[in-house]
Nucleic acid binder design. Sequence first.
RNA 1: GGUCGCGUAGCUCAGGGGAUAGAGCAACUGCCUUCUAAGCAGUUGGUCGCACGUUCGAAUCGUGCCGCGAUCACCA
Length: 587
Amino acid sequence: MQTIYKTLQQQVQTAFPILFNESIGLHQITLNETVKDFEGDITLVVFPLLKLSKKKPEETAELIGNWLVENNPSIEKFNIIKGFLNLSFKNSFWIKTLIKTIDIPKKSDKILVEYSSPNTNKPIHLGHVRNNVLGYALSGIYKANHYTVNKVNLINDRGIHICKSMLAWQKFSNGETPESSGIKGDKLVGKYYVLFNEYYKAEISTLIEQGKSEEEAEKYAPILLEAQEMLRKWEQNDAEVVALWKMMNNWVYAGFELTYKRLGVDFDKYYYESNTYLLGKDAVEEGLKNGVFYKREDNSVWIDLTADGLDEKLVLRGDGTSVYITQDIGTADLKYSDFQMNKSIYVVGNEQDYHFKVLKLIMQKLGRVYADGIHHFSYGMVDLPSGKMKSREGTVVDADDLMDEMIQTAKEQTEALGKIETFSEEEKQQLFEIIGFGALKFFLLRVDPKKRILFDPKESIDLQGYTATFVQYTYTRTRSVLRKIENENIGTWQSSINLSETEKELLIKIYNYSIQLEISCNEMNPAKWIDYIYELAKAYNKFYNDCPILNIEDGNVRNFRIALTQKTGTLIKQALEIVGIQVPERM
RNA sequence: GGUCGCGUAGCUCAGGGGAUAGAGCAACUGCCUUCUAAGCAGUUGGUCGCACGUUCGAAUCGUGCCGCGAUCACCA
C-alpha cells in the first residue's frame, strides 16, 4: 500500500488535463496535513496551480475537490478556504490503518556509515557521545528503510599524539597499569596525555624565560622532540616502542569496549590507522600520472582546487610521508573494495567540513565510481557554557561520568515517585539505565545534527516534557493497559464506529509512521524522527486521558481502543529501538 | 581577510515559499474514590538579528549589513 499523499498527487495529476486541459508535474502538487483550527485532514494548496488552471482559486479548488470526491472513495467531503482545498477522509479510511501497513520497499543501495572514530590517546567525552549516538541512529534509520547498512569504526591509533601519552607514561608512571591503579584503560592513557601537555607547557615557559621565541620554544621543547623521536622509532617498527604502543592501546580498547557496550553502539568492522596510514600513496602516484596532482620542486605533491573555490592542498609530503588526507584517500578505496557501497557516510564533526569537501573532490577527480556517494554527515559541536571542550586541558564532560550521573538522576526521580517498591534490585538498576541513557540519547538526538548543542553540566537533563522519559512512560502506559487483559480473548471491531477527534489524531499519527521514517532517512535527520516519536506519544497520552479504554460497555469500541493501544505500543518501541533507545515494561 | 554554518518566546529548540509562527522548560490556574498525574487541559510570553529586494504570498528565497562559531597547517 502506498501513502495517501502519493495517491492524491497522482489523482490530481490525472484530473488536471481532464478539468483544465493542461498537464502538471507531481512536484507542483503540494499537500499538507490540514492545520488545526480548520476542518479537514489533508490540504491541497491550489495557489501554485492557478497559472495552469487559469481559473480563480476557489473555482480551481472546487473542480478538483469534486473530482476527487467522485474518484476517491476514501474522501468524504471537502471545504475551501481561500486557496486551500481541505479534504476530509472517511473514518473507515483512518481505521484501516490499524490493520494495513504501508510497505517500506527493499532498497538495493548499500550504505556504509563510518562513525565514532576515536583517538586512542583520550577517553570518550560528550562530543564523542553525540557522534556515536548520531551514527548509530542514522544507521538504524537507513536499516529501518530497508537499505543494506554496514557500520565501521576507523580508530586513530597512531601518530604523534599517541606517542605523547606513551612517552609521558614511560617517564612518569612508575609502571602504573589499569590493574594496578584500578583506573579504566582509556582514562589512564588520557591521564598521561594530559600530563604530557602539562610538562610540555612547563618546558615552553622555561625556554621562553631563557630568551627563546614562543615559536621556537614550541618547536624545540625537549619532550616534544622526544615524542617525535618515538614516532620515528614506531615507524621503524622498533620492538620496544611497538610493545609499549600495543600494551597501552589494548588498555584503551578494553576501556572503549565498556563504554560502547553501555552506549549500545556496535560496528561491523574496525579499521585501524596503524594499518591504513600507508595507504593512499598509490592513489597519489596514479593521480600524478594522469595529471590530477602535480609535484613541486621539493617533491611534495599537491592538488589545485582553486577552480572549485578551494585552495591548493598538499596530498603527500616532500619526504614521501603521508598527511591526513593521503590516508583518507587510501581508506576510501579500501572501504569500497570491502563493501562496494553506493553511499559512504562519514559521521564527523563540522570542524572538518573543509577537509571532506576536499576529499570528495579528489576522489571525483580520480574518477572513483563511488565518489559521488561520499557524504560528510557533519554535526555541530557540543559546547559548554565556558566554551569548547578540550581534552588537552581536561575541560571535558567525560562519557562514563555523565552516564553515571544520568543513572543517578533517573534513580532519584524514579524513587521520588514511589512506584517501584515491588521491583527487585536488578530490575531497578535496569530501569534507571533505560531511563538515564534514554534521556541522554534523546537529548542529543532531538536537536538538528548540524547545529551545535550547549550542555550545562550544572543542569541535569530533563525527564519531563519533550524527553525520552515521556515516550517511555507512554509505552509503559500501553503495557499497563494490556497487562490487565492478558488472559482475555480480544475480538474484532467494526470499522463503522464513531471516531472522536482524539482517536482520529492518534490514528493519523500511526498512519504517518512510515512516511516520517522515510522523510527522516531522505533528509538524514534523526531529529525529525525523534520529533515524530514524541508526537506519537503525545497523541496517545491525550487519547489515554480522553477515552476510557477498558472501562466501557460497548465491546466494539473497547476492542478498537485496545487495538489502538497495542499498535501504539508496538510502534513506540520499534521507533525508539531504531535510534538505540530502550523501553521498560513498567516505570 | 577568504570560505562555510548559525541567529525564532525569559531558556532549550521545531518550522526552511502557503492559512492566525509551534513544542518543551520556567511562571501561574484547573484535573487523581475510575486503565500509572514522569500525564492531561488552560493562561502569560514573539519587531522570526537589521535593511532592501523577488513573489499573489517571505520566519522560509536573493543581496547587503550586524552578532556568534568553525575553518583556511608538510596537525588529525
